[in-house]
């Protein structure tokens, strides 16, 4: 018996989607194969990392993260500059956690100011995530879409509860919509259909099928991403052929295993390496599952993932 390479060609292809515009524009998607299976298809754009910044200074972050950014943590524009200039970020993701009505409850206009300040500070494409409060996000993202009319970005999360105003704002001002669903293949597809029915072109949708970190439900996220990808490529299912985004930085660093100091848990070993690896192992798993955009937090985890992607994408 002789070995014959078991090549399996797929019939479908992921849509290409461009974030931003001009010379720093970043195109994702376009592959007709599972992630990194370059021996049997093309992957014209390797997964890309967006580094996240927060509108309000984070509290309770572990030492390793605080040390990585220092004072910049209290100034989103400065923080974004560090990400781009020092760590080579190709995308910046602004997390508007401070708009949460159960938290700092910052107003839509304050949030829009923050986004503007980041946009003025860096010239890479921006992604903007609201706090996850459906009503507030609709209000905030509408204004963000308006003030960013001359600078196409991606806004979300648009969910089944608020996709209409968010998609309408994206359509009016030329932005991409991040469509978020709770770890479910059919709901992800359904939301894509609903948003396209509003008139937003299919190549303006990034799917966010939700992410759990290692130890916190990653098996569900991984499998749902994989199933979406198999539907898109194997069954050529048009309404699942959107590139996927994975908002994993915040999930990874929420894990007890990522943020607990070695004094509190001596048996878990070095807290810095453990935290960085918690994020990086979450990222590689989701990249293997099909994520095209990885939203990440720690510069060392970002650097590790960039190296891993470069090596896997080389063929």
């Amino acid at each position: 018996m002789t070995f014959q390479e078991p090549i399996e060609k797929m019939s479908g292809r992921i849509r290409e989607l461009t974030l931003g515009s001009g010379e720093n524009a970043c195109t994702v998607g376009g592959q007709n194969t599972l992630s990194f299976y370059r021996w049997e298809g093309d992957m014209p754009h390797a997964p890309v990392i967006a580094m996240e910044v927060y509108d309000v200074a984070p509290v309770g972050w572990p030492e390793s993260l605080v040390a990585a950014f220092g004072d910049a943590l209290s100034d989103p524009a400065a923080w974004a500059r560090v990400c781009v200039e020092k760590h080579g970020a190709r995308l910046i993701c602004i997390q508007l956690a401070g708009t949460d009505p159960n938290g700092a409850d910052r107003s839509a206009s304050e949030a829009a100011e923050t986004v503007k300040s980041v946009a003025d500070a860096v010239d890479v494409p921006l992604l903007v995530y609201g706090s996850g409060n459906a009503d507030k996000d609709a209000e905030v993202l509408k204004l963000v879409a308006e003030v960013m009319a001359d600078r196409p970005c991606a806004i979300g999360p648009a969910t089944e509860d608020n996709y209409k105003p968010i998609a309408a704002a994206a359509l009016a001002y030329g932005h991409v919509v991040i469509a978020e669903t709770p770890i479910d293949v059919n709901m992800a597809k359904q939301l894509n259909i609903l948003i396209t029915q509003l008139g937003l072109p299919a190549d303006k949708i990034l799917m966010d099928p939700s992410t759990g970190a290692v130890g916190y439900g990653i098996e569900y996220s991984y499998t749902v991403s994989e199933r979406l990808r198999l539907a898109a490529l194997g069954q050529n299912d048009d309404m699942t052929q959107m590139p996927m985004i994975c908002n994993l930085g915040k999930e990874s660093w929420r894990a007890k295993e990522a943020k607990t100091s070695v004094d509190e848990e001596p048996a878990w070993g070095d807290a810095h390496k453990r935290g960085v690896l918690w994020e990086a192992t979450t990222a590689i798993t989701m990249a293997a599952g099909g994520a095209d955009v990885l939203v990440m937090r720690h510069p060392e985890a970002v650097d590790l993932m960039r190296q891993a992607i470069d090596r896997l994408a080389a063929s």
Partner: peptide
Amino acid sequence: EPWRMLPLLVLRQNI
């Protein structure tokens, strides 16, 4: 060392 075994063992448990 536990800082590298822990994430891999937990990921394995999940997968």
